[in-house]
Write a protein that binds this DNA or RNA. Structure first.
Lengths: 344, 344
DNA sequence: TCCGCCATTCAAAGCGCTTTGAAGTGATTC
DNA sequence: GAATCACTTCAAAGCGCTTTGAATGGCGGA
């Protein structure tokens, strides 16, 4: 059942039927009711493909998720971000088009997704420091918004980011306040922008306390549980082990905790742990008395907001490009405590 | 730059240009080269919307992820499944359209996604025992495939599932072989089909060993870390606590482990834990000496296979509906050991 | 009675591509 | 020299919708 058939059945023109169904005012209310009834009766649904061709809008947002070959890990936060964005899209009649893209086909993939007309806008995930995607997208002349930032790109672009530097500086400062002096950092891959910024925050906090960084206390790798586990072990094996660890994600922190406990130590007493908590729905850190002391910022909320900002950009392309910087909250949990007076 | 413009520039008809670009044989190789060069030069990309209208195929697969209001948790396995499916789609020129759907708008959402022509096929996630979606989709007359099964639906439909009953029966049997007699089950929500089947497997193994199930040792809730944690505590608080626990997912098992350690017990010695491991990329259980003894089946591989099966169905609609049942592997890890001879 | 106006409705022109059926070339065959 | 054929190319008809610009008819005011 298509528009032509329906309009023939009703003895009306396609124009009138289309307008009746789309709520245009220049249709007699009686006619509109008749059309609506027939549409329901014959179970008519307009063909999306034809509609998008005619209107010129795809009513879809593209999300491009990069994943490399060496490291097939799908970003842990991705599901929650998508959930947040998806909620908003649904409320606005947009659909969401996902593309998982291997690093090496990045460029072609952008063409694939942004290929003329498949989507009205794009959200860029997991940007690297000098992410080439920004230039490509700017060139493609399609609205896009970056979840995160791209330090090395100086041309303006739309983004929403957590203040990672400040967050980790605050967190590290909290550990310093507790008296810790040897503090390790277990970070994500530092080619990614957020990880680089978190590292900056860590270094800034140490510097502010007059401490020199120790390369042996800085680790960077993909953010999985076993990585956190092995990195923590390695640091705790040092002649001068850290008394506190900063983990760049809750998943890493889980591995850190396992390592601590395997050594017969207690987290929060013998070793303090602070992590960044994206408030993932399936890995909640607790509300009243969180398991981990953390810098907290909901990635799901970020997804929602990114969706809103991008749709706003699409609706009003002449507005300045939106940028938003969110501050993370420090929440005190059970994983931190005063520095043990080990050598006194 | 569209096809018409390009063909005018080349002094060729749209037909020839279209055929040249799409690899049809009836085009002079010299002409084809000329067309290809011009297309590259003018950066021509065919408009996807127009193409799908003309061909009648959307070249997109829809994924519908349900989430309820009480429980906003996005299925943990979802990201990995999507990653697997996405890889396969990319290789076949398909794109992936996601819809996050609140339980209450389920029906309308199906119309939204399957709305005439938006997608060529649909993958159904997290089916419940008597999932109403199957009937709706069958009615919509669009190819679809269920990841999991729907026990109460008797009409044929395409599916791919892990043999959950058998997997958990095997796992529980393993614990029984180790001498455990009080074994707890920490399951997912049992309105979901897979959880129901896992429960069946647990009960079957107990029955085979001549043991009666104890309701106090059976827990069912959403699969998050804190739920595993609280459920384990509750069971270990019983006058006759279990000596072994079966957890329906690795995330639950993480909470279980935390509870065990909080009580000063050691997992694998004092309390054995067996879980179902979906081989999530960011929560690997280890390969040589896994942290947890587990029934293992890769959800990413399932995603890949589901995508293949669905695309096969779309390509050859007259073939019988595919169904596939996968067996999970028992992998022995550090979390299980012989039943402690507590009261002897 | 005529005119202009408002409320409806319509025919037709796209949107940009694919695909059908026909036609224009030489070259080859009888 | 006419007929056949393979190889290329083309004009035009969709695909199913939206939207423009025009037409229709009923009505009150002049």
């Amino acid at each position: 059942m298509n528009l032509r058939e329906l309009s023939e059945r009703l003895n009306l023109s396609q124009t009138t039927v289309s307008r009746a169904l789309n709520g245009y005012p220049e249709v007699n209310e009686q006619t509109r009711a008749r059309v609506a009834a027939a549409a329901a009766k014959f179970n008519y649904r307009p063909n999306v493909r034809a509609r998008t061709l005619a209107t010129g809008r795809a009513m879809a947002i593209g999300h491009i998720i990069p994943f490399s070959n060496q490291n097939e890990m799908v970003n842990v936060v991705f599901a929650d971000f998508i959930a947040g964005a998806g909620e908003v899209y649904a409320g606005h009649g947009y659909s969401m088009s996902l593309a998982l893209v291997r690093d090496e086909d990045e460029l072609s993939a952008y063409r694939g997704v942004a290929e003329k007309g498949a989507v009205d806008g794009i959200i860029v995930h997991s940007p690297a420091r000098d992410d080439p995607r920004i230039a490509v997208l700017a060139d493609l002349d399609i609205p896009f918004l970056v979840h995160g930032r791209v330090s090395e790109v100086k041309t303006p672009y739309a983004w929403l980011d957590v203040n990672n530097t400040c967050a980790i500086a605050t967190g590290t400062g909290h550990l310093l306040d507790l008296g810790h002096r040897r503090i390790g950092l277990i970070n994500g891959e530092e080619r990614l922008d957020f990880a680089q910024r978190r590292r900056d925050g860590y270094l800034a906090a140490l510097a502010a306390a007059g401490l020199a960084p120790d390369p042996a206390l800085m680790h960077s790798a993909e953010m999985s549980e076993p990585r956190g586990h092995s990195a923590a072990h390695r640091m705790l094996d040092l002649p001068q082990p850290p008394t506190a660890l900063v983990a760049s994600s809750l998943v890493l922190a889980l591995g850190v905790r396992r390592a601590i406990e395997e050594r017969g130590l207690r987290m929060g007493r013998d070793v303090s742990v602070l992590c960044f908590d994206d408030e993932l729905s399936y890995l909640p850190n607790g509300t009243d008395r969180p398991q981990f002391t953390a810098m907290r910022s909901s990635v799901r909320a970020a997804g929602r907001r990114c969706a809103e900002l991008l749709m706003g950009q699409i609706a009003e392309p002449d507005q300045p490009l939106p940028t938003e910087l969110w501050e993370a909250d420090l929440v005190i949990g059970a994983s931190t405590g005063p520095c043990p007076q080990r050598d006194l």
